[in-house]
Design a protein around this nucleic acid. Structure first.
Length: 508
RNA sequence: GGCCCCGUCGUCUAGUGGUUAGGACACCAGGUUUUCAACCUGAUAACGGGAGUUCGAUUCUCCUCGGGGCUACCA
């Protein structure tokens, strides 16, 4: 135990971080970034740090932080250091680190690498508009750049509002080797003197990130490609501060079917929503990793352990990928089919309770009550019900609708549902009566095998099996599509089965 | 507009200086002792375009076109 800790914090092992802003529920894109970081850390036996970037007080909310932690954990992406776990570099919430940044900002100011800017927002906006009109990149022209620091202090004392900008020398090429995108170059002229802090106590994102990554000894910054244009700014800040630079790896973006960045309005982006709809974490993980990474083979299915073993940054795709819900659904179905029935049953029960089909029995027994009929059912029974649909399920939340006929006194349907193809009522009624007769003899011997035998025997006497099997199934389930009549009859039991068949025969 | 990134079936992708350009999802057809699902089989389907290098380019180079990202006193 202690050995392992020591090893994890060994200086030569990579340290990566996920730095989400708690301004909304855990986003599927953030979860994917987390997954890449997690795999990289686990594979290299490094450390995965979770740092909450909540310096934007207006938009950051505690409940979102909770949501982020909860669903990262649910996906199995556990972190080694974080706000809830602590660690050698605590605190892990930027809002609790505000004092840490002050000396760094001061240092830049004292060294003349940063300065106070008194330009108003209106002035800046006008300038930007002008620059856009003549086709120049919008950047600060440096009006306050040469204000004497003493004068700046005096103006500050007088109560003038100001921000702090970094002095960026023009025409300098900033380049870095991105682990995914390769060599990437920027010209400092496009950046201008950008703002690094509102004041000594309020650093802005780019500065806070650089300082935190340095202090937390982050070796690899693995993040979404939407951050690529922040990278030169962060490099400049690190250089000004004399800090070492981490390795960068920018992940391709996840796109909507319309090829845009995944949007909250058009798509389901909250991991919590996927959880609620009944997606399995394994499926989500497997799906997310394949969206942007491929081992170099045809393989599609990977467990987390296998991913930890096989993952590598150089096999990460460079182009963005579209989030294809159908593919996720297929994969979720696959993982549902892999699940053992008792486990699947446990996973489905909450959905049956939520839909009002089932009630928990307070004393904590392993039984449930069917709300409509007040019958008490066992886990074994529910397992049989759900087992009928294991291969049909795509998401868990589909289950109540699929199996509702097991939880109702009577099933409702249009009598025409009973009609198979072009048969007439008389034929169907006759078939139903034959089925009733065949099953009635079985009451004490209600096994799948016998039911099969009885029903098939009766059906064959008629000739076209569908003439009997279709109405039997429809009468039992009230549905156009369902599990097979044999299975349904077996699980339903003799009384209900025969009652439903008799009722159907009367409808015709 | 400026800067940056990207470009193989509808989608996720494999792949190579010479391949019948492979797989998976989706779609379609057939099979699978009633339906649906699952499963099996099969079909349709791609190297954005133009130059150049080369005996030969999907592959290398350039241009172009297209798509996306960023462009805050947000992160």
């Amino acid at each position: 135990m202690s050995d392992e800790k020591l090893e994890l914090s060994a200086p030569d092992r990579p340290r990566v971080r996920l730095a989400p802003s708690p301004t909304g529920p855990l986003h599927i894109g953030t979860a994917r970034t987390a997954l890449f970081n997690y795999l990289f850390a686990r594979q290299s036996r490094g450390t995965f740090v979770l740092r909450i970037e909540d310096t934007d007080h207006e938009r950051s909310k505690k409940k979102w932080e909770k949501d982020i932690l909860k669903y990262l954990a649910w996906l199995g992406l556990d972190w080694d250091e974080g706000p809830d776990k602590g660690g050698s570099f605590a605190p892990y919430r930027q809002s609790e680190r505000v004092d840490i940044y002050t000396p760094y900002i001061k240092q830049l100011l004292d060294q003349g690498q940063a300065y106070y800017c008194f330009c108003t927002k209106d002035e800046l906006a006008a300038q930007k508009e002008y620059q856009a009109s003549i086709g120049e990149p919008p950047r600060y022209i440096g009006r306050c750049r040469n204000i004497d620091p003493k004068e700046a202090q005096a103006r500050l004392k007088r109560g003038e509002s100001a921000v702090i900008r970094l002095k960026v020398s023009s025409d300098k090429v900033i380049s870095f080797q991105d682990q995914i995108c390769g060599q990437t170059d920027f010209n400092s002229s496009e950046l201008g003197d950008f703002i690094i802090a509102k004041n000594l106590k309020e650093p802005l994102y780019n500065l806070a990130v650089v300082v935190d990554d340095y202090l937390m000894k982050i070796t690899h910054v693995i993040r979404g490609a939407d951050h690529i244009s922040n990278t030169p700014k962060q490099i400049l800040i690190a250089e000004a501060l004399g800090l070492p630079q981490p390795q960068y790896a920018h992940l391709p973006l996840v796109l909507s079917p319309n090829r845009r960045k995944l949007s909250k309005r058009e798509e389901v982006v909250a991991v919590s929503d996927y959880y609620q709809q009944g997606y399995l974490p394994q499926a989500l993980v497997n799906f997310m990793i394949l969206l942007g990474w491929n081992e170099g083979t045809d393989r599609e299915i990977y467990s987390m352990d296998e991913l930890v073993e096989k993952f590598s940054l150089d096999k990460v795709q460079r182009s963005g990928g579209i989030f294809d819900l159908k593919r996720l659904n297929w994969m979720n179905g696959y993982y549902i089919r892999q699940e053992s029935l008792p486990v699947l049953t446990q996973m489905c029960i909450p959905y049956l309770i939520k839909s009002g089909h089932l009630e928990e029995i307070p004393n904590g027994s392993k039984k449930y009550r069917i709300k409509e009929t007040k019958e008490i059912v066992s886990l074994g029974y529910l397992g049989k019900v759900i087992g009928l649909y294991q291969e049909r399920l795509k998401v868990l939340s589909e289950i109540p609708e699929l199996v509702d006929y097991f939880f109702k006194k009577e099933v409702k349907y249009q009598p025409t549902l009973l009609i198979w193809k072009d048969k007439d009522k008389k034929e169907i009624k006759n078939a139903l009566n034959r089925a009733i007769k065949a099953l009635s003899g079985l009451k004490r011997d209600w096994t799948l095998e016998k039911i099969n035998e009885a029903l098939l025997g009766a059906a064959d006497e008629i000739g076209d099996r569908g003439t009997l099997l279709w109405p039997v199934r429809a009468a039992l389930t009230g549905k156009e599509n369902s599990a097979s009549p044999f299975d349904v009859a077996y699980v339903l039991g003799p009384e209900k089965t025969i009652r439903r068949l008799e009722r159907a025969a009367k409808l015709l």
